[in-house]
């Protein structure tokens, strides 16, 4: 077992997590809801180090949908960071956006995707985009590092300009697949 194996964490040289942080600031995000994910760990650290961002660690992702509803009601912009396995936890709660026309941008790191090792991740990973779209979410994928920032920016714009849930799916081709040392 290699001790260097890290769960789908992006390459330490990759600069897109810092770029997403800059986009959150550019688009005046104030609340960041998240269930921790290795793929987002660098971005989460940047958010935690920023006193103008309120990081809300959730017990389950559907809480984040409701939090984004409340933030918008109170005049603040928010996003949710999560892993694709958490998307299934959001299904019914996403109706809040449909009921009220609430911007709800989500930035999702994929599992069960390109080169997945863990069988348990595949069902939800393969269903992620279909499930989000079934609930009215506009979904865009980024499968190359250079696509991540334009895609996140487009998803933020779509959410706040057109009042709906949007998602950026960051593929495992960008993140690398966790191999439990068995690659």
């Amino acid at each position: 077992m290699s001790h260097s194996t890290v769960e789908t964490a992006p390459d330490a040289q990759a600069d897109w997590p810092d770029g997403i942080y800059a986009l959150l600031k550019q688009y005046s995000i104030r609340q960041v809801a998240l269930v921790p994910d290795a793929g987002h760990s660098r971005l989460i650290k940047r958010c935690l180090g920023d006193n103008e961002l309120r990081v809300v660690t959730l017990t389950t992702e559907e809480e984040g949908i409701a939090l984004m509803q409340g933030a918008w009601l109170g005049g603040e912009r928010s996003v949710m960071l999560m892993q694709s396995s958490g998307v299934g936890n959001c299904i019914n709660m996403l109706s809040l956006s449909s009921i009220h026309r609430t911007p709800m941008p989500m930035i999702v790191t994929m599992r069960g995707d390109f080169g997945e090792f863990n069988p348990a991740q595949v069902a939800m990973g393969q269903a992620t985009q279909a499930v989000l779209e079934a609930m009215g979410t506009l979904v865009h994928r980024a499968d190359r590092p250079e696509d991540v920032l334009p895609t996140v920016e487009a998803s933020l714009k779509l959410a706040f300009n057109t009042f709906r849930p949007t998602a950026t799916l960051i593929g495992q081709r960008v993140l690398g697949a966790k191999t439990f040392g068995k690659d």
């Binding site: 104030r30 609340q31 933030a71 109170g74 005049g75 019914n92 109706s95 809040l96 009921i99």
Partner: peptide, 22 residues
């Protein structure tokens, strides 16, 4: 008032997002 018609299980978290924003 925000009376909810759905989102069962979400009322307290909507309150949290609103309380943080206001």
């Amino acid at each position: 008032n925000l009376p909810l018609w759905g989102g069962m299980g979400g009322a307290a978290m909507i309150g949290l997002g609103l309380a943080l924003a206001q």
